[in-house]
């Protein structure tokens, strides 16, 4: 299909608007010069510098730990929530419950962050890695729940009934039948939660303490003292990690369907 000139231009402008800033950042991360706005030839030295920077490495380690823990917790809670909402049928307050689970999707981050901060202060919890983990779990859980419940909605309930019929307890039926079948959606949800946690600045800055600085916080505070090529390099790496995460998440969901369709086609042909 050929695109008309109008479509071509709108497509170009749209993508330029979305990605030009990032492309410039990536290009300047390979700049030889220390000045961010002056191009002085290609170099990867800032990536080398980055690896020697203890502070950045510490922040990266904190970020990954937070992301891994919060996404795992969010996946467990989100999957359970999705399961209940899809399976429990109509119960009193179901609409309210599903609304409340999805509300964080549209809740301003500042408000989520502030309310969590007040909660932690009120409960007198020392802020640090654990508080960020809890905070990230609360907002990424709803994303997991959305992904998993859309998979569960198309899940043939007679599979679970068959498992029960063959002597499995409801608990065994969930782990041996339901979970393996919805696994791609659960994994996709985990990856989504992981990337969301990686790049969150607002909620993390509300709920962090002196002991735990995540990468986005580190970058934000470093930029206030002036943008360095090192920050560009770091940001490029984060873009790479997040992009890979999102791509893998969508591939995992699609691959299962595509593979099955192809094999079914092969069976029909034979």
């Amino acid at each position: 299909m050929r695109l008309s000139w109008f479509n071509t231009i709108s497509l170009t402008l749209g993508f330029a608007f979305l990605y030009l800033p990032m492309v410039i950042l990536v290009i300047y991360s390979f700049n030889e010069s220390k000045l961010v706005t002056v191009w002085a030839g290609f170099s990867t030295k800032w990536y080398g510098e980055l690896l020697k920077n203890e502070e950045f490495l510490d922040a990266a380690w904190v970020t990954i730990r937070v992301a891994a823990m919060s996404s795992t917790l969010a996946t467990v809670l989100g999957t359970l929530a999705a399961y209940v909402l899809v399976r429990a049928g109509r119960f009193a307050g179901r609409t309210l419950f599903s609304g409340m689970i999805y509300a964080p999707l549209v809740m301003p981050e500042v408000i989520t962050g502030l309310s969590l901060l007040l909660l932690f202060i009120g409960l007198d919890i020392d802020r640090g890695v654990m508080t960020i983990v809890l905070a990230h779990t609360t907002f990424s859980m709803c994303y997991v729940s959305v992904v998993v419940s859309s998979r569960l909605a198309s899940f043939d309930t007679s599979l679970e009934e068959a498992a029960l019929d063959l002597g499995a307890s409801p608990f065994t039926a969930f782990f041996l039948v339901t979970l393996p079948i919805i696994a791609p959606a659960v994994i996709a949800g985990w990856l989504l939660a992981f990337t969301l946690s990686l790049d969150d600045l607002v909620i993390a800055s509300f709920t962090t303490g002196p002991s735990a600085t995540t990468l986005p916080i580190k970058i934000f505070s470093a930029v206030r003292l002036g943008v360095s090529p090192e920050i560009n390099a770091l940001s490029t790496l984060m873009i790479v990690v997040v992009t890979v995460g999102v791509i893998v998440a969508s591939l995992v969901t699609k691959r299962a369907a595509v593979a099955r369709a192809r094999e079914e086609l092969a069976v029909e042909r034979s």
């Binding site: 043939d156 007679s158 599979l159 009934e161 068959a162 498992a163 029960l164 019929d165 063959l166 002597g167 499995a168 307890s169 409801p170 039948v177 393996p180 079948i181 099955r260």
Partner: peptide, 20 residues
Amino acid sequence: VPPNKRAVNMMFQSYALFPH
């Protein structure tokens, strides 16, 4: 007697074979 304890088995219309 719950379904998983009954000496009754069922063959489902959709077959309900475990795909994995």
